[in-house]
Amino acid sequence: MIQVNNLTKTYNGTTVLNIENLEIKKGESFGLVGNNGAGKTTFFSLLLDLIQPTTGNITNNGIQVHLSEDWKPFTTAFIDESFLIGYLTPEEYFYFIGDLRGQNKADVDALLDKHKEFFNDEILNNKKYLRDLSKGNQKKVGIIAALIGNPEVIILDEPFANLDPTTQIRLKRIIKELADNPDVTILVSSHDLMHTVEVSNRIVALNKGEVVKDIQTSEETLKELEAFFAV
């Protein structure tokens, strides 16, 4: 589904990302782990054509992301709060995203209803603007908004950060459910090795912009990763 070729990103002579070759297959549940500054967000931003690669390219379903925009209809993402529109209520935001993705109100309502438990009654019908929600609740909105419109590629940057334990467990359930769908490719980054191991069937570790581990998840994966990061 996603093919990375000789991708590098350099800022003022410092290379922050350098991936020679990486292929993410359709239906894969892909976990990206790494320390701060390892290049996780840079990689996702490149994948969304939010920044331009210094060299190389990424193709998403055969479409070079920095040449054509045709990847947008089947790709969704939640990177950070800058993906939210602060002066909208959660409902308005969901419907707006739904509009952009060709979903009518009923479609969006159905999806929201399905994830009612995830919201824990803190999001909908609260008469609050997104900018006035707590960080965790903002994140919940962003994550669910990324599920609107049956996307085939879902990119979530640090989805577990700022969430309470109950919501983390519920989010894991949601991601696993999506991962079971052979048509959905889901990319998740995290600092938390355990979460990532639980929801991903393939894990790539980045360190200083380079791929240092690329493993199919198994019983030993967590130990292997912990050993790697325990410096």
Binding site: L50, K72, P73, S82, L84, I97, L100, R101
Partner: peptide, 12 residues
Amino acid sequence: SGYYSMMMSQNI
């Protein structure tokens, strides 16, 4: 500007 990157990654 606050959410321009979201707009640009959407199908707009």
